[in-house]
Design a protein around this nucleic acid. Sequence first.
DNA 1: ATATACTGTGTATTTTTAACACGAAGTTAG
DNA 2: CTAACTTCGTGTTAAAAATACACAGTATAT
Lengths: 231, 231
Amino acid sequence: MEAILPKFDSVFSIDCVIFGFDEGELKILLIERNEEPYKDWWALPGYLVEQNESLDHAATRILHELTGLRDIYMEQFYTFGDVDRHPQGRVITVAYYAMIRLNGPKELKPVTSYARKAVWYPVRDLPKLAFDHAKIFEKGFVKIRNKITYQPIAFELLPEKFTLTQLQSLYEVILNKNLDKRNFRKKMLNYGILKELNEKQKGVSYRAARLYKFDKRKYAKLFQKELTFSK
Amino acid sequence: MEAILPKFDSVFSIDCVIFGFDEGELKILLIERNEEPYKDWWALPGYLVEQNESLDHAATRILHELTGLRDIYMEQFYTFGDVDRHPQGRVITVAYYAMIRLNGPKELKPVTSYARKAVWYPVRDLPKLAFDHAKIFEKGFVKIRNKITYQPIAFELLPEKFTLTQLQSLYEVILNKNLDKRNFRKKMLNYGILKELNEKQKGVSYRAARLYKFDKRKYAKLFQKELTFSK
DNA sequence: ATATACTGTGTATTTTTAACACGAAGTTAG
DNA sequence: CTAACTTCGTGTTAAAAATACACAGTATAT
């Protein structure tokens, strides 16, 4: 059947690796494709870049069309251009990632009919993915794993108010290792980018923990002066 | 005159930021263009990706054609896709960088007529560049500056045998700051990736310094286990 | 032999990282 | 209401890494 599909000479596309954190698990957003090729397969949200839009703009637009998510800030991380990565011809794809607060429903409604639905999947248990999307995901995962070790970007994944234990278990999930509770808290509080709230979590069995908020202003101040080789 | 140039619907290209170190200065390789658009301008070595080659392959090929350099390992660092970055239409470019040992002549002979010549230019004093190449260079420079702070990649820029003072001044040039001599030496030797040679530099006025070699095997062993968030 | 210019080295201080355990607080169940 | 349970929240010590800092030694040139 593929023979009747149009052939591309050279086309750009965008693919998005969108991370979320829910039920103690790291998840990414996948769409169920409703078009050939790879119809009915799971895939990263992605589509073709239009003639008159920048890459960043295309990324935002495409993510919205396929998942309904609006105004998500994404960062480009790699471009995949193997000759045979797309069965219809030469398609080079620029990959973006984002980490977002996952508070809506598990299943999102695409705006276009190109995807049937968008669903959060735990990264530990992903289905088989279309194209080379498994490779793209893997590279994106490595990217955030590295990034989190030198920049506290994990807050974007948490609800606005969170406990230190939640923050720690997020780190543990991303880094795939256990961290020491006291050292972790000391270090995080030392950054000075957490606002301690006079509130405790609610609706938990057993003792409730104190809630914290992420302080954007202090974060910006701290990380505008990039990491430097010390004197 | 531009009206008679062909229009591109969508084309991929590669641009290369090739760093070298010579005469105490950090340099990059520029070509003098011999074709429209931007004929006679200085530009990063770059050209269009062909239909049947991967990005990595295209990068190596293009660098060779424009500068005569062979088998240079480059790393992709960003993709630039602003709508108007190329006057003839939509050209998305994937940027690569490399750090190489600069031991040949200052001027290199391109294989194609697309460039007239390729020349090493000090990064502190670059000419005006074609397209958005100034932006591409800048991003590449930031990339290596960050990378060098957590991975000793600077050796690739030095001759096979080098003194610690040479290594230090390379760091100082890239990071644009002075480093403490004793601390620098302590740290570098501590990595355990330098082989001390029983040789001294030659042809210098005043006391000659000891020469060192970079030990690839130990480097590989040290940096395969990536940086990790400590427990 | 003397001036010159760069080489090569050590210590003390501060900061960061690492290892490690238990009582207090709140919830549940009987 | 009390006992059992689960999670919270906290401090110290040791080791390692980063920083600040200065001068005598050695090869060369004249």
